[in-house]
Design a protein around this nucleic acid. Structure first.
Lengths: 351, 351
DNA sequence: TATTCGTGCTTAAACGTTTAATCAGAGCAT
DNA sequence: ATGCTCTGATTAAACGTTTAAGCACGAATA
């Protein structure tokens, strides 16, 4: 309460000026106010400040589905970046539903967020909402701010597999409508090059006919000559890995399996998954920085209200080679070289 | 702006009363105000309301580590419960650090949350903070509000394994200092009964000597006669499952593997994991309900400021039997009965 | 000496609600 | 007619900041 600090014999306005360093206050008075404030345990009311200034210091984080295993990485990075910048993070889950997404955005708006970070539902474009917005998706989505370079990540993985000598690889995606997954698959194909034969399996489609959690029939694919299974998400990669292992097909000495995103289990599974990781910390920093830039400059430039449209930042992805990839077997002869113990590779994070 | 609504020729106070149904306003005027409000697209300023009433309508969610794979379930359930009750959720990550935990709590307080849900760091007790608090941990932590009955969940799993005929099982935990894990292990032992031999392995300890992500040596354990591996988390279970499969030990026809928490991959892995799940929706509802009860009653009863200390709710856990458990092999004869296709069990959720 | 200027502070309004207190008028009993 | 109560509305204060405008005073300038 600046009223209490006014027990110094000065006015509340002076206290406010002293603490914020805005107006004209003598240095010695500033010092006295400072010490008195901490003596009294003064903590400013962000609510009142928000009412006066119109800025709450809170950002919204809109997620397509909190249950998504990638979410912890995103949320942690965003929370960290925001809190470093002095902002709080209000979460909103659109639970996969597109109506819920707009409704969640509305609720955040009512709460007076200064801006929001949106990870859009697959295939959704974010219309103009009433506040600065940063979208995290994929560079191929138009009008976005920041994203990992999924295409290039796929290309890295493709080149890795091609270099190992794989000539027939199965690409495994989940949802045809996901921009991110399509980018990754496009990159994979490009990285593999024209000479390697590849086929794409969409889990969503096989589950539509065989039921959820059904076997993907990968043993048959292996028998048909596929030597590498490049999933577009670590969850699918895990599914492939266990299904192959269960069928007695050794990974990586018979076939290779790769994933995407370096999810929590990738490093602890046997064999540890070769995957591609995005640097969420960097992405979050960029998104938050862009958001804050717009927020702070609002008022000075009236025209640029709304979307953060200026630039598309694409953050490179990082290939992490672990134990699940190796050279393809030559006529059933297992690649024993790959039977190394499961020790961590350089450049990987702790699980 | 109620000022704009005052263009009806009435005062702002009357508009406020009309919309909230508090004071004495004639029914027809209420109707007129309502229609005018929606006509003008009026949206009340929660900030101003917060300043006046001292309640922000925001709850804090303090998590030990957002990167924890269980976090999505928790966050989603809490967010859902809170938003149904009309509250927003501000997240705070203590990143495993105990100092960061108190600091995060402090930041939430400054932001004026009405209450907070805390999932404490392992082994931490939450001291009295300046607002209503609901703690989600384990019933054996004193002074808590709501938790899954981890002990009983362990007991269910123990009984399941005992009923299948396992006589020597290895219990796998991560961290010795976790109350939750200790409860689960206690329950497992009790459920297995005195006649089955069991040993406990703490991953934290073996990693301390062999490095992170090292093999756990489970093949040797199997050779030593262990026929079931009961992990206290699905992540450890997955680690065990893949390590055993890789070593050529069939699950479940040679040994059984079980987990805890029904994490995202449990259902899609082959063989799908038998696990125990907590009903996060119920837990979240209870926590939020308790919190809100205290918040709303504050002011009426002055004495009960602070902790929600009244009751400890323990929510039952649910055993989900899938394909990773079966009868122990008799002298190396695989239990072929268990080689069923990977189809979902009744009572399980979609992945 | 009178004017301007800069400094250090105060006054007052404003942000958009809620709510206690007040008030004008109507109906009704005395 | 006078007093009472009940109803439907108004007034005004308050929540805790920020900030534009103003003011008094001493120093520098004309």
């Amino acid at each position: 309460m600046s009223a209490i600090a006014a027990a110094l014999g000065v006015s509340a306005a002076t206290v406010s000026n002293a603490l914020s360093g805005k107006g004209r206050v003598s240095p010695e008075l500033i010092e006295k106010v400072r010490s008195k404030a901490s003596e009294l345990g003064y903590v400013p009311s962000l609510t009142a400040r928000a009412l006066r200034t119109g800025r709450t210091g809170v950002l919204g984080l809109v997620l397509p589905d909190i249950a998504n295993p990638l979410f912890p990485q995103i949320a942690q990075a965003i929370e960290n970046a925001a809190s470093n910048a002095g902002y709080g993070v209000l979460i909103a889950d659109s639970r996969g539903d597109i109506a819920a997404q707009t409704e969640a955005i509305g609720r955040l708006l009512e709460r007076g967020v200064d801006g929001m970070v949106i990870v859009p539902r697959r295939g959704t474009r974010i219309a103009d909402v009433g506040c600065p917005v940063a979208v995290i998706d994929t560079p191929s989505t138009p009008g976005n701010t920041v994203a990992a370079d999924h295409w290039e990540g796929g290309a890295q993985m493709g080149r890795h597999l091609a270099a190992l000598g794989h000539a027939k690889v199965l690409l495994i995606g989940t949802s045809v409508s996901s921009n991110v997954q399509n980018d990754r698959i496009g990159g994979l194909k490009a990285g593999l090059g024209a000479r390697v034969e590849c086929d794409t399996m969409w889990i969503e489609r096989v589950e539509a006919v065989s039921g959820e959690g059904c076997p993907l029939g990968l043993a048959e694919k292996a028998a048909a000559g596929f030597t590498a299974f490049a999933a577009v998400s670590d969850l699918s990669a895990l599914r492939a890995l266990t299904e192959l292992q269960r069928a007695g097909i050794g990974v990586p000495e018979m076939v290779s399996v790769t994933g995407f995103d370096d999810l929590i289990w990738s490093a602890v599974v046997t064999p540890a998954l070769t995957t591609v990781r995005m640097d969420m910390a960097v992405i979050a920093d960029l998104a938050i920085a862009a958001l804050i830039r717009v927020i702070e400059s609002e008022g000075e430039e009236e025209e640029a209200a709304g979307k953060v449209t200026s630039e598309i930042d694409r953050v490179p992805m990082q290939l992490i080679v672990r134990q699940s990839t190796g050279a393809p077997h030559a006529d059933g002869v297992p690649n024993l070289h790959a039977r190394t113990p499961n020790k961590p590779t350089a450049g990987e994070l702790k699980p």
